[in-house]
Structures are given as C-alpha cells and as structure tokens.
Nucleic acid binder design. Structure first.
Lengths: 250, 250
DNA sequence: CGGTATATTGACGCCTGTCAATTTAAGTGG
DNA sequence: CCACTTAAATTGACAGGCGTCAATATACCG
C-alpha cells in the first residue's frame, strides 16, 4: 500500500496530519487546543473488535485516525446491513445524537485507531465556537447527502454500476488523504462490500472478474489498480474524470 | 381523510399546532418568538410546483405546514430517485448545508404550505440558543438514521417487505400528528412510491392487490385502511405493535 | 504446514423489471 | 353536470439479472 502519511498515536490535534480533513479545519490555533483537551485517544482496535454496539448508550462520537471502521445495523430477525465504511479523518456515531442509544454497531475492518470525542463536551464547545458548530452541521449534512446517494445506488443501479461507483468513491477518498486514487488496498472483504452494496458476494466476485477481463481494473485480492477510469466513471454515472492531478502526472 | 387539525396560514410559531413537533419544541416561550421573527411564511405551492431545484443556491431550510413534499436527486443521465417525503412539521433542505447548493429538488406532491427559515439567521440564533442548536443536531441525526434504514430496506428487503415498511412508517408519522394510523390517504402516487422504494410501479400495484386479497389492507386508490397490522408489522421486520393507543380504543 | 476463512466459478431458478393492453381516475372545457 | 382528454393504476405475459446452492481454489493465520 502506498502510505505517504502515517498518523501516530497520542499526537495533538494541531500536529495531526489529518487536521485539515477532520473537525479542526475550521478552528483557530487556540481553539484547536481546546478541542484537543476534550479528546481521548483510545488504544488501537484489532480487526473485528467493536467500538460500540447497536443499543449501547450514546456518549461519544469518534474520529478514525488510522485503519478503517464499518458501521452496520441488525434487524430483529438478524439481517445485517452495513451502512458505511469510515476512513481516517472521518467521524462515526453521529446517528446516535438524536437517541439515547447508537442505532448501529461500529466494528474495525482492520487494525484501527480512533479519537474519542465525548459529545457532551463537544456540544458545550460548540456553543462557544461558532466555527465548530457550523463544521459539525456541515459534516452531518454531508452524511445525509451521501446516504441519499446510496439510496440512489441501491434503488436504481445494477451490479456493475454499483461496484464502479464504490471504487470511484473509495478512490476519491484515498486521494483526499494523500494516497493514490489509482492503486489502493480495499480495507474490507468482498462479503462486506457486497453487503454494503446490496449484492451477493458471488456477484461482487463476478463483477471484479469481468472488470479485470475487460481491462477496467487490475485486482489482486484486495489490491486494486484502476486501469480505465474513463469507463468506470461512465459506468458509475458521472462524467469521466481526467487523471491529470493524480500520481501519474501530478 | 380524518383531519383533526388544520394549520392556518400566517399563524405564529407559538400558536401553530405543529409547535410540539417542529423545531420550537425545545424552546422557551420568549425564544420561540425570536425564532418566529426570522421565519417567512410562503404562499401555498400547488401540486407539482417546486420549492427549489437541485443545484439552486442554498439559503434556507423549510418546514412543511400542510400538504406534503418530495425531495429527489437526478443523475447526469436523467435517472431520478426520490429521497424522501416530508409531512407537516418535517424539515427539508438540510442536505444543502454542507454545500453551496441543494443536492436535491423539492416538489409539492399535493397542495402544500411551508415556512421558510433562512439558514444564516437560524445559525445565528443557534449560537445564542443551546436548545435550538441541540434540536437541530438531533433532527439531522435522526435523518441520518432514517436514511440508513432506507439503505437497509433497499438493500435487503423484498417488494412485500418494502411496501409493508413504508405503510407502517407513514402510519406512525400520521399518528404523531393526531391522525388515524389505520385509515389515511397516501399523499403520493404509486409511481412516486415505487420510485422511492426501488420498485417498478407495476410491482407496487401487484403488492397492493395481493395485500388486499389477503385481507392485510383495504386500498381504494390513495385511501388506505390497515386491516391486519400484525401481519404487516411482521412483514416489515419489526415486532407486532398493539393498537391500543390508536383511534379504536384510545 | 495444516486448518479455516475468504474468494472464485458454475448451474439453476425466482423475483421483479419491462413491454403491452386495458381499466380507472383525474383534470378540463363547454 | 357531462363529454372529452390525459394521466394514473391495474393486470398479464415474458425474460433477464442476480440470488442461492454447491464445489473448488486461494489466502490467511496460528
């Protein structure tokens, strides 16, 4: 994996390489220190360990520092639906604010470190820092928007389009974090991908095989190389994106 | 339709019968007046008219006073996905906070009145009213939670389960507003329902016919009577709900 | 290196979308 | 209020995409 940056445990917010992506982006230096003071840095979660379970009392939101999480809901009859994957700098737990309890479980899909942000304190802080309040609302608004795009995907797109959309989405998120958007490692299994995308594992596997056969990607297990992003883009339903600002020519 | 309550145009927030459902629930009397002062009450929208279009500059969120709205996204290739229906007291436009533009269009599915809440002013108000700020975050959190439940529906449920879930969801929302949850009128067309639920109109129609044949509901056009809520509940994937606190015995 | 989880590939069937034809409802003008 | 037009809803026939089941191959891990 092309790791240009590596978050280190216990680093202060203002020194964290994720600071431009995480909450602090909107804060002044001294405010960042205030935010910093309420954040607890937890010990790493190993793959499969849970950060919290559906039904647990809501108390904190979490920011991923390294690794990746998944969140999922379980219905009364045991059906599971993954509702999202969280990469470094992304927040998890926002859906618990309204209720006393988290409506989802959060689990590490690989070794993961998180910052815990007690919501009570964050809320207090938000009352004195307008920038922070705005940023929080923006993050929640963005999540609503993205979830609704998932509704579109699940409701209207076929298997090829779903996988293409998913790969591009991941690619874009990796790029924002300074990684290559053409070559990356999927943090999740085929099973988890299928669950998230509303597809059977077998279908995911078949699409990957076909994409590879048609020269769209090069997939070696979880290692992915995007070879024909034009075609993938058009499959995903967006306009083709030129790759000028990616690692090839950047 | 069993209309127990009827919002009247130009009524102040503190006199609005929706006040316990809408934002003001968390506010003290004098604060409600402050909120009241920033709200613009618009003229009614006729069925089919738009409140805003996808891509329009974001400036306000809106509260539905009467009638119903739908929000939908349109992809580059013209595919439409309805992302939600908004009933009286519900907010629309929250997904636009993060960006400069609304990511969805909002259109009246029947004659509808809305309150316009300029976001700039709401945001200012939120800085001085902690209760308002919390309430806003709760509403957004709830929307995230509900959108993720839709992801579950679209990803894992079959046609019967989707319709059952949808009917129960509507029933619950009607009940909260003082209407019967057993007999109500659907504000949207079969087409819109199908679009929202990821089903073809024909499938929606067939499921309705089958539900009726099996004695689950009585459907006369848009008029719906829930006859066997136990079965519908179990189809929807939830625990059966007793009807004690509904109009039959309440 | 053996045991287990994960991934791949093939065969088959079903749910649901698509196409087409009515039927019914809604909206409009005289 | 009724005839006319148009939209919406229903019903049937058909087929295809994807899920399910099963077998094998590969990767992962202690």
């Amino acid at each position: 994996m092309t790791a240009k940056v590596k978050p280190i445990n216990q680093v202060a917010c203002k020194d964290c390489i994720l600071s431009t992506l995480c909450l602090p982006i909107a804060l002044k230096i001294e405010d960042i220190d205030t935010l910093d003071s309420i954040i607890k840095r937890g010990k790493p979660l190993r793959k499969g360990e849970h950060l919290f379970f559906q039904g647990d009392t809501f108390s904190s939101i979490y920011a991923v520092r390294s690794g990746a999480l998944k969140t999922y809901t379980t219905t009364d009859d045991g059906v599971e639906q993954i509702t999202g994957f969280q990469l470094p700098s992304e927040l998890v737990g926002l859906s618990g604010i309204d209720d006393e309890h988290y409506p989802v479980s959060a689990q590490a899909v690989e070794t993961t470190m998180v910052c815990e942000i007690p919501f009570e304190k964050l809320d207090e802080l938000a009352s004195t820092l307008p920038e922070l309040r705005r940023k929080l609302m923006q993050i929640m608004s963005k999540e609503i928007r993205e979830d609704q795009q998932m509704m579109l995907l699940l409701s209207k797109k076929n298997a090829d389009e779903r996988i293409a959309t998913f790969l591009l989405n991941l690619a874009a998120r990796f790029r924002r974090r300074g990684f290559s958007s053409q070559a990356f490692r999927l943090p999740m299994s085929r099973n988890e991908m299928g669950n998230y995308l509303g597809l059977a594992v077998e279908t995911v596997s078949r699409v990957f095989t076909r994409f590879q056969k048609n020269g769209l990607i090069d997939a070696n297990g979880k290692e992915i190389l995007i070879k024909d992003s034009m075609t993938i883009c058009s499959l995903a339903g967006g306009k083709p994106v030129n790759q000028a600002n990616d690692s090839l020519t950047g």
